[in-house]
Amino acid sequence: MDAAEDGAERGERIAKWLARAGVASRRDAEKIIAEGRVKLSGKLVTQPATFVQPDDVVMVDGKPVNEPERTRLFRFHKPAGLVTTHRDPEGRPTVFEKLPEGLPRLISVGRLDLNSEGLLLLTNDGALARRLELPSNAWVRRYRVRVFGHVDPAVLAELKNGVTIQGVRYGGIDAGLDSRKGDNAWLTLSLHEGKNREVRRVMAYLGLEVSRLLRIAYGPFQLGQLERGTVDEVNPKVLRDQLGLAAPVRKR
């Protein structure tokens, strides 16, 4: 018996299965397992190396989890004023509360902070979310940013060499001045890492106050003309072409 046959007989690791089912990323699925919140066919799961067979029933927090469906990816035009989380301890409105009904359980690819707007990718596949977040993808995140303060194009150009702020190293950023009116200006920034609050911190380092931050692209996926607060599913063929995913197997 070869390794592929052995893997098929054992099934799929439960953490990966939960990620594909959109419950959480694989890493968070492992935390959920460690917290004793997962059962497999009535038995408590204690190890992420547990395997799921086709006829098994998986439950999280006492509720059955549907089998993973095909991988799906959505573009969402996030408005300002929403937090990118399923639950907020401060009671602020969340992205997932504002999504239309009828969608599968979704998780976000990365985050946009409370006051940021624009393109947020959502998927039902936690493993895909983790893959799209990896810095090794080198996918460009592109933003339009309105700032208040004096903008020096020469200083903006220096950002391509990266910058260290309070001990944190930020990689190269392509920054350009689009327009200026008085002390207000619009910039376009392109970066690869997308660290937490990176744009705001780099702008503050330059003495610029961000008054609006809009993400317009994440890798090959564009905000385009998507209206604020609306969701649009990425065509499955585009998803396969861009990410190299296998086409779904047709059942006979």
Rank of each mutant, 00 (worst) to 15 (best):
R131G: 07
G229K: 09
L226S: 09
L187D: 07
S116R: 01
R111P: 12
P153H: 01
E133Y: 07
L213M: 10
Q222M: 11
L114D: 05
E193Y: 05
L226M: 07
D113C: 01
R215S: 05
E198K: 00
V202D: 02
I107H: 10
V145D: 14
Q166T: 13
L213T: 00
Q166C: 11
P135H: 13
V151K: 04
R250M: 12
D174S: 03
V109C: 01
R130D: 13
G176L: 04
Q225R: 15
E233R: 09
E198R: 05
P220M: 01
G110P: 02
G110I: 09
L223C: 03
R252H: 04
R212W: 03
T188R: 15
I173N: 11
L132W: 03
V145S: 13
K251I: 11
I216H: 00
V163S: 09
I216V: 14
R180Y: 06
R146K: 12
Y205V: 07
V202R: 10
D125N: 12
Y205S: 13
D113M: 08
Y205H: 15
A247K: 12
K237W: 12
R146D: 01
D178M: 14
I173W: 03
R105T: 00
K160M: 11
I107M: 02
V231Q: 08
V151A: 09
D152L: 00
S190L: 03
R201H: 02
L187C: 07
L122E: 06
L191S: 11
R169P: 08
G176C: 06
A138K: 15
L213I: 11
I165E: 01
P236R: 11
V234I: 15
L189T: 00
E117L: 06
G172Q: 06
P153Y: 05
L114I: 14
G118L: 01
L132N: 06
I173L: 14
R111K: 10
N137I: 11
A138S: 14
G110V: 12
V168C: 08
V238Y: 04
L121I: 05
R228K: 14
S190W: 06
K251V: 04
L214G: 07
P220V: 02
G171F: 08
E117Y: 10
G207W: 08
Q242F: 05
I165S: 08
A185P: 12
R130E: 13
R228S: 15
S108E: 07
L112V: 00
R180T: 14
L187A: 08
R200V: 11
L243D: 03
P153S: 10
G118M: 06
I173G: 04
L187K: 05
A246Y: 04
L226W: 12
D183S: 15
L120S: 02
A217S: 14
E233N: 09
Q222F: 02
L213Q: 01
R131T: 10
H192T: 14
E117M: 08
L121Q: 02
R212A: 10
V147K: 00
P220A: 05
Q166N: 14
P220R: 11
A185W: 07
V231I: 06
T230K: 13
A185R: 10
G149Y: 08
G229W: 09
L191C: 07
F221P: 04
V147I: 04
E193W: 03
R130V: 12
P236E: 09
R130M: 10
